[in-house]
């Protein structure tokens, strides 16, 4: 016993070091296999407010660009509005709507890490919840991972854990959108069968498989493609429409039918 105590006293610095290192390692490994830590993220009150203050100052320098982007988006939407050919009934009852949108602002962005997260200035007070989709006017951005009262952190598509259902526009060939962590302007589309005809320049949009994003939200265009190791699927490099280094206004999408879809899926799985 005496010897054990002596040992502990003698090596207390080393043991303390190992202890602290083990804690951080454990936290890292847990977040590797599972998801971002509930508490150690920048959406908490203190860091969220710091980023908000800093963003309030910095965002003034990008106002011109931001205005340009918004008017571009307005143009696109008006174009769609005036060229509407199908008869479209505006639902009078909000329960008939499939999606609701909430506008917000990115107050912290990163793209240099392996796992990038964006912090936005909307949180659970604005009924933002986990697993809602986040987009910008140009394309998809990511999925809500954690929320606090006023802020939420978004798992960016530039995150090695990100996996989003995507397809080639105007077809139903879908695959998964992942990121190989190499370049912040390109992501990869995998699991597209080799019999699908592809062309460089084809547009990639979100698929109908996910209950997070509506179908046909633009993602990017194909810059190159190759067969993967199994030689039966394509490995496609997709250049993003979004400039991930410059994120301003964002929209949070809530699928109002998500609960219904999820419960149906769960039931089906249970029946198997």
């Amino acid at each position: 016993m005496q010897q054990i105590i002596n040992f502990v006293i003698r090596y207390k610095v080393f043991l303390f070091f190992i202890f602290l290192f083990a804690i951080s390692l454990l936290l890292t490994i847990v977040s590797n296999t599972y998801q971002q830590s509930k508490f150690l993220n920048s959406a908490n009150r203190i860091s969220g407010n710091f980023y908000k203050v800093s963003n309030n100052t910095v965002s003034y320098f990008g106002l011109r660009e931001e205005n340009e982007r918004l008017s571009e988006e307005n143009q696109l939407l008006r174009d769609r509005l005036y060229n509407r050919t199908l008869l479209y009934k505006q639902p009078l009852d909000s329960t008939e709507k499939n999606y609701t949108l909430l506008r917000g602002k990115a107050i912290k962005n990163s793209f240099a890490n392996q796992r990038n997260y964006i912090t936005i200035d909307k949180g659970s007070n604005d009924s933002v919840k986990q697993d809602m989709g986040v987009i910008t006017a140009k394309g998809i951005l990511g999925i809500i991972e954690n929320t606090s009262a006023q802020f939420a952190s978004v798992q960016s598509i530039l995150n090695e854990k990100s996996n989003i259902n995507a397809k080639i526009k105007n077809t139903h060939h879908f695959g998964s959108l992942v990121w190989n962590t190499k370049d912040y302007s390109t992501v990869q589309l995998v699991d597209i069968p080799r019999l699908v005809p592809l062309n460089v320049g084809d547009t990639i949009v979100t698929g109908a498989m996910s209950s997070i994003f509506p179908e046909n939200i633009p993602i990017g265009k194909i810059v190159s493609f190759d067969l993967d190791r199994s030689k039966s699927f394509y490995y496609i490099d997709v250049q993003l429409f979004n400039d991930m280094t410059n994120i301003g206004a964002i929209y949070v999408i809530d699928n109002l039918k998500k609960i219904e879809i999820r419960s149906l899926e769960n039931e089906t799985e249970l029946d198997d």
Binding site: F17, L25, S47
Partner: peptide, 20 residues
């Protein structure tokens, strides 16, 4: 630093190693 930059505890581990 980790909390602010969403890196879980990587900076903590590196910083402790440096300190040791």
């Amino acid at each position: 630093v980790d909390i602010f930059s969403d890196t879980v505890a990587i900076n903590a581990a590196a910083s402790v190693t440096g300190a040791y």
